[in-house]
Simulated assay, not measured.
Amino acid sequence: MTRLRVPAPTAVRGCTLTGPLTPLPPRPTRIQRTSAFCKHWILRLVALAQRYPGVLALFGFVSGLISFFTVDRHEGFARVIAVVMLVSWLWLVVEKSVNRRVADRFGVALPTPVLRYVTQMIHQESLFFVLPFLYAATTWNSGQAIFTGLLGAAAIVALVDPLYYRWLARHHWVFLTYHTLTLFAVLLTAPPLLFNLRTGESYQLALGVAVVLAFPTLAGLVTLQTWWRRLAVIGLMAVLATGGWFARAWVPPATLRLSEAALSLQLNTRNPTAEKRLKEVSVSQLRSSGLYAFTAVAAPLGLKEHIYHVWLHNGREVDRIPIDIRGGRKEGYRAWTHKRNFPPNPAGRWEVRVITDAGQMIGVMRFDALAGTEP
């Protein structure tokens, strides 16, 4: 029988086998490759935004301006931007849980600094989007100037990184308050554009969401134990809701604005325009012909609003006349009231406030009633 000689394995100099061979790692799946690709580009976009921080704020402001000027003509851009604002805020609500699930499922997660910067970008976009609406709706010789000025300051904080990260983000309750205020402003503006909600309904929605979001902040401030802590937090939320409702006159109705307002002794009712705008009027003129209050209120197309002309004499309300308006006219919906019944002694300081059904002020007209001869 012929024996087969099997050659011994050839030794390779410098190599020593110390155990079993390690298998090659499995190739990434298509989903993992797609996730890594998206993460790569998100990080690049964030780095670019960090390099040019003013671009995002500028985009938000320009988009707000375009939305402000196109909403009267029912162009879709304003609603698209409003949808983007609401979707971005929905992302802020769910981003932690979504990022955690994506990391568990695909092994890819965005770093925490990136998520914080995305939050900052949404704050910038939101604040600069609502500012044109609020600026036009603000009655600057009233308490509304404080609210709009506060939002302007918040927009500057979102734009300046040292203020945003070193001061705002380090104080948890301050950051939550800032976050809630920004969302409150967005909910004042976006729902009337998207769903034709009345300003009162939009204010109630914004206030309700703000009170709910304030719960973590209030819970962190109350240090009581057991069930007293729950009662204290609920009481503080009730106080916040009540205070927010009574402060509504200081908050401008974001989607309503006076495009024209005048007081006059005569009015062309066929083509409503005030014949002569008055700042002073004699008591005899008031008693003989009364006074017209003419307003043109601009509102989004499809929006129907119930407003009032509230007449005040020396700070005391003497009359409240209801008006129904419809949105869509670039020049504003023209309406007027004619007041003929005045107090026995009408001399003094008068105001005609234009307010919504919810009590938010759209504008104010003032005049002095002088005893004696015509001014």
Rank of each mutant, 00 (worst) to 15 (best):
L45V: 03
V71K: 10
V93H: 10
V93M: 11
D72I: 04
D104L: 01
K96D: 13
L92N: 11
F69R: 11
V102R: 12
P25R: 05
A36F: 07
A57W: 10
P26V: 01
N99Y: 05
V83S: 09
G64I: 03
L115C: 07
P25S: 05
L65V: 14
E75S: 07
F59M: 11
V114E: 14
A49M: 12
R33G: 05
M85R: 02
V80H: 02
G76H: 03
T70F: 13
V98I: 14
R44P: 00
E95H: 15
R51W: 05
A57R: 14
L24T: 09
V94P: 06
L86V: 05
S97V: 06
Q50T: 00
F69S: 12
M85Y: 03
G107K: 01
I66F: 11
V108A: 04
G64D: 10
A57K: 13
L48F: 03
R105P: 00
F77E: 05
F68N: 13
H40A: 01
W41S: 04
H40M: 00
V108D: 04
K96F: 08
N99R: 11
V55H: 13
V98S: 14
L56F: 14
L48N: 00
I42S: 08
R101E: 06
N99K: 05
R33E: 11
M85F: 02
L115S: 06
T112F: 10
L43A: 06
P113H: 11
A36L: 14
L65T: 06
W41Y: 14
A109S: 13
T112Q: 14
L58H: 07
V98A: 15
F69C: 08
A47W: 00
V55I: 15
V87G: 12
V114Q: 10
W91T: 04
R27K: 06
T112H: 13
S63R: 00
I81E: 02
H74N: 15
L56G: 10
H74K: 15
W91Q: 10
V55D: 13
R73N: 12
I31Q: 14
V87Y: 12
V83Y: 07
F106Q: 03
G76V: 02
V102W: 09
V102L: 14
V98Y: 15
G60D: 05
V83R: 04
I31T: 12
H40Q: 04
W89L: 09
T112K: 13
H40E: 02
F69V: 14
E75C: 08
I42G: 09
P53G: 08
G107E: 04
A47R: 07
R33A: 11
P26G: 04
A109G: 15
